[in-house]
Nucleic acid binder design. Structure first.
Length: 802
RNA sequence: GCCGAUGUGGUGGAAUGGCAGACACAGUAGACUCAAAAUCUACCGCAGCAAUGUGUGCGGGUUCAAGUCCCGCCAUCGGCACCA
């Protein structure tokens, strides 16, 4: 036997699979299907790092196993290639982003192929290709047609460094998701997708899918549905009312003041009648200056100004109450105005203490002289509500009262906001809308799609948040599709998340130029059976794509209401220093280096063996060597092969147990213990001194999804017939997973005294009797009385004595 | 502040309430070698010569039996963050 030349063997089988189309998803729709999806990468100039490899290796193993189980497997890959880093490289090096993108895709493709992933390379997607983004624009126009696209001039998140408007999802924590600089709030007219219209559907859909619990929870929190009531408070001085949203209408009797956001429109409406308008303007200006960071730092110190000239009237008590402006009330949530109940809300309490406002207790249970009480209790000082002890009843009763008075009704609110859908940059899908002075916003006709990106000399964004496209007159100038008069094209492009919001549908039918995918292909392949990716996409890509899919479902264009039946997430690979891998820290591991030095099979095994798949774990070069040793020992096993076509007595139950363990662990994503079980089996095979043909063949099959190259090679070298990737997955016999005898432990008062080999089906009485015969047990029991005897079949005997 | 997760040897990590530390890494000793690497064999939680004791973040509890279940803390990580 010659030494294992992994470079030669891996190249050989990668070529074989490629030439034979081994992993092409079949068009034969009579076979049972399985659709595994991994998040397609953004092709950056740095190439892939080992984190990508781990992210794809999980479902890679599942895909290879499924094929052996007889499924028609769709395991596609593509590139989510629009985005700022590519554009920034283009600007810096003065190369067209198309060229940069093609170069990066080529780099990623060669890396992925070297690892031997079983992707269907005939279905590769590139979101920046005309044949693809045509359909991204097409879906956008469908949304436009159905009233889900609108423009609005409001406060937006703006990144001064990237010079783009960001969605709420892209500015989490007040930082730009692309460059991590501080976000500022700006008033700007931008595009929105009405995702809030789907808030309830997105929430309800979570009940029907199999996602990791924390994935569901994060989405629920992001959508942030709350139920409560809208209440109108009359303004004494004018024929006007101030509408608020509250989750606690039961506390209406405790309202002693109101607070509105500094930007609330009522201030502008009555600015001539408000006597301290200068003070209000000054406060508003001060708030606008504060960064997101400062606002969160000042949580404990409430500020605000009383509005002189506006007095509100509590609709239930008819009492007159003051109105304040304060930045602890946000214009973007609810109605931008609140009723303040200082006795039972911590923020209102702090505000009332600072401004010397009355605090009226309406729920018993706390000490409101010390702090706000937010718990439950008996209603007091609350007129018709007095004596009610249940919050639900109190709310219901109050809603009745409000209805009678005609000044309020039940309502719901969401934290999720509409999706700011635009970038003021070049490298994105052009938004296919024309602005006409006569007709307003007009859709580009469907037969003119794709609306192509024009050639540009200079990709630099404009200074005042304008897209580079705005500078290209030939692009901007057009005629209105409706009335034919001169008009202007929209120059914003779509955000990075557009292309990835429907890519899983395109994989079903990637070369279709008549539809985004044929109905037949969608019906066969959808939904995605298993989707794996990173936790960082849970509240963006996942929600966005579920929204697009549900929209298409409502139009009858897709056949399932949810795109993903199951969602899991892999943990990060950290650097050897235990820190997140990053270029600046210099702790990034390049998969190419590992493949070159140890081989693709070793890399694949290690990223799955290094720890719990869902948890973060640091890279360790030494542990990579451990996997290399394992692979070499597998290679060496061919020298121990006997002629027998059956399992040997020595290894029979071991084989069944390991096949069972590996089969089940793959389904549970416990790849580390699956590999450990195969290592144990391999050690046992070496200890047995020989291995039968059947044992070796079955071992190669269960190892194949993890280490496909060496197993294919050995399968061929041992003459088992055919190629391994076309064999069937092995089954196990539950009855043969148990040994004839088992080792049990004998304990006295829970302390181990001795161990004992007994027949596996011994009864409890037999076990206890046998245990008592043991010298160690007899000795420990001498002179003591037995309190209790416990026997657990196959495990232990415990005798409690006194 | 709220929500969630995690806490086990020198390291990564295993353990349907039933022998804690599987599997691997590192380490120690030995074999092979002129030598080294590779490989193979043995040992390998801590304390102790040993018998033995002790041990899964901390403090309680349930149980014949707790890493695992319950109560109360602490720490680390992640998400949200004045959401009315």
């Amino acid at each position: 036997m010659k030494n294992y030349d992994f470079a030669e063997v891996e190249a050989k089988w990668q070529k074989y699979w490629d030439e034979h189309g081994t992993f092409k998803a079949s068009d034969d729709h009579s076979k049972p299907k399985y659709y595994n999806l991994v998040e397609f990468p953004y092709p950056s100039g740095h190439g892939m790092h080992v984190g990508h490899i781990k992210a794809y290796s999980g479902l890679e193993v599942v895909s290879r196993k499924r094929r052996l189980q007889g499924y028609n497997v769709l395991f596609p890959i593509g590139f989510d290639a629009y985005g700022l880093p590519t554009e920034n490289t283009a600007i810096k090096d003065n190369i067209h982003p198309r060229v940069v993108t093609d170069r990066n895709i080529e780099l990623f493709t060669s890396q992925l192929k070297k690892v031997g992933f079983s992707f269907d390379w005939s279905r590769v997607i590139d979101t920046t290709e005309e044949g693809y983004y045509k359909w991204t624009q097409w879906i956008f126009l469908k949304m436009f047609e159905n009233g889900l696209v609108f423009r609005d001039k409001t406060l937006v998140n703006y990144c001064p460094s990237c010079k783009v408007v960001l969605s709420n999802e892209d500015s989490q924590g007040g930082k730009c998701d692309i460059c991590h600089s501080d976000i500022v709030q700006r008033t700007k007219e931008v595009w929105y997708l009405r995702i809030t219209e789907y808030a309830d559907k997105l929430l309800e859909g979570l009940e029907t899918v199999n996602y990791l619990p924390n994935v569901k929870l994060q989405q629920q929190n992001w959508i942030g549905k709350s139920t409560g009531a809208f209440v109108n408070f009359k303004i004494k001085e004018f024929d006007e009312s101030l509408r608020i949203y509250t989750t606690r209408p039961d506390t209406l009797y405790g309202v002693t003041f109101m607070v509105i956001a500094p930007e609330h429109p009522i201030i502008q409406k009555y600015r001539d009648q408000i006597t301290n308008i200068d003070a209000l303007d000054a406060y508003k200006a001060e708030c606008a200056k504060k960064s997101e960071f400062e606002r969160t730092q000042l949580v404990k110190d409430k500020t605000g100004v009383k509005i002189e000239g506006l007095t509100a009237v509590n609709p239930i008590t008819k009492k007159e109450i003051p109105v304040y402006i304060s930045d602890y009330v946000m214009m973007g949530y609810g109605t931008g105005a609140i009723m303040a109940v200082p006795a039972h809300d911590e923020r209102d309490y702090e505000f009332a203490k600072k401004f010397g406002i009355d605090i009226i207790e309406v729920i018993k249970g706390g000490d409101i002289s010390k702090a706000a009480y937010t718990g439950d209790g008996e209603m007091v000082n609350s007129g018709v509500l007095n004596g009610i002890t249940n919050k639900k009843d109190a709310i219901a009763k109050m809603l009745d009262e409000l209805a009678k008075l005609g000044c309020g009704e039940a309502g719901v609110q969401y934290k999720m906001k509409d999706w700011a859908f635009n970038r003021q940059r070049y490298w994105g899908e052009p938004i296919p809308i024309v602005h006409c002075d006569t007709c307003g916003m007009v859709a580009v006709p469907y037969d003119e799609l794709p609306l192509k990106l024009p050639p540009v000399e200079n990709f630099e964004p404009g200074t005042d948040g304008e897209s580079p496209l705005a500078k290209i007159e030939s692009f901007v100038k057009c005629s209105c599709p409706k009335c034919g008069k001169p008009a202007r094209r929209e120059t914003d492009t779509m955000p990075q998340w557009a292309g990835s919001s429907w890519y899983f549908l395109r994989y079903c039918d990637p070369h279709n130029d008549k539809e985004f995918a044929s109905k037949e292909a969608l019906e066969y392949w959808m939904p995605v059976d298993w989707y794996n990716g990173g936790m960082e996409h849970v509240t963006r890509h996942m929600i966005y794509s579920r929204f697009w899919h549900k929209f298409l479902y409502d139009l009858g264009l897709v056949n399932t209401s949810e795109p993903y039946a199951k969602r899991t997430a892999q943990g990060l690979i950290l650097g050897t220093d235990g820190e997140k891998m990053s270029k600046s820290r210099g702790n990034v591991v390049d998969p190419n280096d590992v493949v070159k030095q140890y081989g693709a099979d070793v890399l694949r095994l290690y990223v799955l063996f290094m720890g719990d798949y869902e948890k973060a774990a640091p890279w360790s070069e030494n542990s990579v060597k451990g996997c290399k040793r394992f692979v070499d020992r597998v290679w060496g096993l061919q020298d121990k092969l006997t002629d027998s076509d059956d399992y040997s007595d020595a290894l029979r139950s071991n084989m069944h147990k390991t096949i069972k363990k590996v089969s089940e662990d793959i389904e549970a994503m416990k790849f580390n213990t699956a590999i450990a079980a195969m290592m144990t089996l391999l050690n046992d095979m070496y200890n047995a001194g020989s291995v039968t043909k059947r044992e070796f063949r079955d071992f190669l099959i269960i190892l194949y999804p993890f280490a496909p190259h060496i197993t294919e090679e050995l399968y061929e070298a041992c003459g088992f017939g055919g190629v391994l990737s076309e064999q069937e997955w092995v089954s196990w016999d539950e009855a043969l997973c148990v040994d004839a005898t088992v080792e049990i432990v004998c304990q006295i008062n829970g302390k181990i005294k001795c161990k004992l080999n007994i027949p596996k089906d011994s009864s409890k009485d037999e076990m206890i009797a046998l245990a008592k015969e043991q010298a160690e047990i007899a000795e420990a029991m001498a002179g003591k009385s037995v309190v209790k005897e416990i026997a657990v079949p196959g495990k232990l005997v415990n005798i409690v004595v006194k």
